[in-house]
Amino acid sequence: MADTALPMTKSAVVPSGTKPRRILSGRNIMLYGILIVVCLYYILPLWVMVMTSVKGMPEVRLGNIFAPPVEITFQPWVKAWSEACTGLNCDGLSRGFWNSVQILIPSVILSIVVASVNGYALVNWRFKGSDVFFTILIFGSFIPYQVMLYPIVILLREMGIYGTLWGLVLVHTIFGMPILTLLFRNYFSSIPEELFKAARVDGAGFWGIYFRIMLPMSLPIFVVALILQVTGIWNDFLFGVVYTKPELYPMTVQLNNIVNSVQGVKEYNVNMAATLLTGLVPLVVYFISGKLFVRGIAAGAVKG
């Protein structure tokens, strides 16, 4: 096997001489040309958002949405943050931002804790029927949320947390469970089982192995889960609308209510500033996390 592979790799490394690849070959101009045009399409909306948000309204009315501002102003940002009106109130996006933060932190922690323990139990402590529950969980992630919306309303009402932030936290934990459990299950099953056995012989129990062996070995996957949940929960709209009261609306709902509010004159620069502000948290997470984000979304696609 090794003997036959060797000459092949050699011939792949040493160019045969018939087709030298130049940087400016026709093929490369085509390739990079297409990619650059495609990237322009992707960048354009971000560019438009930023440009519009730093123009004054007169300039917006006059000009071209793609043109950079003649005069930069941060007034729209200030207004979007603290003064913009929905149909109900006029304290801008800040209210929604803080609501989202209050929803985000416990939801992310709780959902990751629950799902990581699930994944760990599914890999190392299988009990009768555990695989059945896992299968239901995965198929459950395909059920349209609309089917479960109302039963959960009843459930939350019975628990006395309907309309509260904690109700929404619970909903995020529930609906984050399938994908995160899958993520952790796949990761934990890549850890050699013998390590788990050794720890059992060493007398460590369920939680001992989880905290002392598994957790320290799994920090990367916790980061992936964190990215997945922060962006996912921050971007949620439907659950925010259904399970909270207007004064507790998360940022996305607040944003939609500001921009699509039919009252008053449309201030496009403020709207774009508000849109950008709402997108900022996931964007920052995305640009910092780089390849881990890709890993997170791919985890949802690759079935273990």
Binding site: P192, E194, L195, R200, V201
Partner: peptide, 28 residues
């Protein structure tokens, strides 16, 4: 397993990667 009075050695060594050798030996 820990109450059976046995010690076990595995094919893949199964050493806890985040602990030192001393930590591995003393974990049990």
């Amino acid at each position: 397993p820990s109450a059976r009075g046995i010690g076990m050695v595995f094919q893949s060594y199964a050493l806890y990667p985040q602990m030192t050798v001393r930590g591995n030996l003393s974990f049990g």
